[in-house]
Structure formats: C-alpha cells, structure tokens
Amino acid sequence: MLLIPCPYCGEREETEFHHGGEAHIERPQDPDALSDAEWANYIFMRTNPKGLFHERWVHAAGCRRWFNMARNTATNAIIGTYKIGEKPPKGAR
C-alpha cells in the first residue's frame, strides 16, 4: 500500500485517495475540430508504461484536492507529487 505525499496535507495512506488515471490529458479546446479518431483517442486511449508515469490522484478522504504524481510503475517509487498546473518535479520529466 502506497504512502502518498499529498501536496497539501503531507503523507497519508493510500486508502484516503482515489486514483484518477493518466495526468496531463487536456480537454480539447474545440471538440468539433477533432476527427472521430482524435476524439476517441482523447476519451479512451491512455499510456501504460513500465517505469515513469504521471498520474492524477484526489485526496478524497482528506482535503478533496486533485494533484499529480510521478510514480515508477515498476517499483512504486514516488518521485514526487505536484499541484495541478505545476510542472513535474526534477527527475520526473
């Protein structure tokens, strides 16, 4: 079970959080400008790397804030967490 450093509350058990899938997927500004394939790509397609992964979490049972985490999916090492709108920490770009 992960020990997750919430950028607002500090380290808390994973049970307090919900996973929100891959991070840094922006909603298209003009959905109508996208082809069906591009729109499907935005909705459905996600990467699933072994190693460095940027993902979203929400501190559901804590401060209710969404944030991003850079995690190594092979080791579960957390390289860092960062607030929405911030850049990933050094070593996780």
């Binding site: 919900h18 929100g20 909603r27 929400v58 559901a60 209710r64 969404w66 929405i84 709108g85």
Partner: peptide, 13 residues
C-alpha cells in the same frame, strides 16, 4: 461532487 471538483480543479481552474 467528485466529478464537479475534478473538472473545476483540473480543467477549468
């Protein structure tokens, strides 16, 4: 509520 917060916080701050 989670859905509303997700859009407010991550997409439409």
């Amino acid at each position: 509520l989670g859905w509303l917060e997700e859009w407010l916080q991550t997409e439409w701050p």
